[in-house]
Amino acid sequence: MRLTNLADYAVVVMAAAAREPSAKLSAARVAELTMIPPPTVAKLMGTLARGGLLTASRGAAGGFTLSREPAAISVAEIVEAVDGPIALTSCVSGDVQDCAMEGHCAIRGHWPPINQAVRGALAAVSLADLVQPAAAAASGPAVATATALAD
């Protein structure tokens, strides 16, 4: 299982915005801060704004700002704004037409709780967590959630 590059970049873009929460950031500035190509950043910032995670303002003093406090925005929300709902398998997403085993799968009923656990782990990590140094984040809520899931 792997996030798409765009979802990964979206998390990086949002973390850059969280590090400067009072600034109105342009796509060019975020590209400079993150080293992600400017066209990709511009596309992502538009997508994140449409997803309600960034607020766009136009004009000479315009730019993008976080729509909420960093602690109120989760990694799950960012991923879903870019990639859509988190679904590990086609039966979790409701797209069973893609599954050759649909009529006789004994595992199908087990995927929803697994999917919820993965989404829950991503939802437990906020932008505020991501902008902390990695050592401080290692003892935060995401680690506790991941540890509880492993038990």
Results as ranks from 00 to 15, higher is better:
44 L>F: 01
76 A>E: 09
67 S>E: 04
118 V>R: 11
84 G>P: 02
112 P>S: 04
15 A>K: 01
91 C>N: 00
88 L>Q: 03
18 A>V: 00
11 V>K: 03
3 L>G: 06
111 W>M: 12
124 A>Y: 04
127 L>A: 00
122 L>Y: 07
21 P>M: 02
86 I>M: 01
81 A>R: 02
36 I>R: 07
69 E>Y: 12
62 G>E: 04
105 C>R: 00
115 N>A: 09
108 R>I: 03
101 M>Q: 13
144 A>H: 14
42 A>P: 06
70 P>S: 04
77 E>I: 07
19 R>Y: 01
119 R>A: 13
82 V>F: 05
67 S>P: 03
62 G>N: 03
86 I>H: 10
108 R>H: 12
103 G>C: 03
108 R>N: 06
49 A>P: 07
58 R>N: 09
45 M>N: 02
105 C>V: 08
150 A>F: 14
26 S>P: 14
20 E>T: 05
118 V>K: 07
86 I>E: 05
143 V>W: 10
69 E>T: 09
48 L>R: 10
5 N>G: 11
123 A>K: 05
64 F>A: 01
121 A>F: 08
147 T>M: 14
125 V>N: 05
62 G>F: 11
46 G>L: 10
120 G>C: 04
95 D>Q: 05
138 A>Q: 13
19 R>H: 03
43 K>A: 14
85 P>M: 12
1 M>F: 06
111 W>N: 05
4 T>Q: 04
80 E>H: 11
15 A>R: 07
54 L>W: 04
97 Q>F: 14
138 A>I: 14
93 S>I: 05
45 M>R: 00
86 I>K: 05
90 S>R: 11
71 A>R: 15
68 R>L: 06
45 M>I: 00
88 L>P: 04
45 M>A: 04
94 G>S: 05
108 R>W: 10
64 F>V: 04
140 G>I: 09
109 G>L: 03
34 T>N: 08
43 K>R: 11
82 V>I: 13
94 G>N: 11
123 A>V: 02
141 P>W: 01
98 D>W: 15
25 L>Y: 04
46 G>D: 02
88 L>C: 00
57 S>E: 11
7 A>Q: 11
99 C>G: 01
29 R>T: 13
15 A>S: 09
36 I>N: 02
97 Q>E: 12
144 A>P: 06
83 D>L: 07
75 V>C: 08
134 A>Q: 11
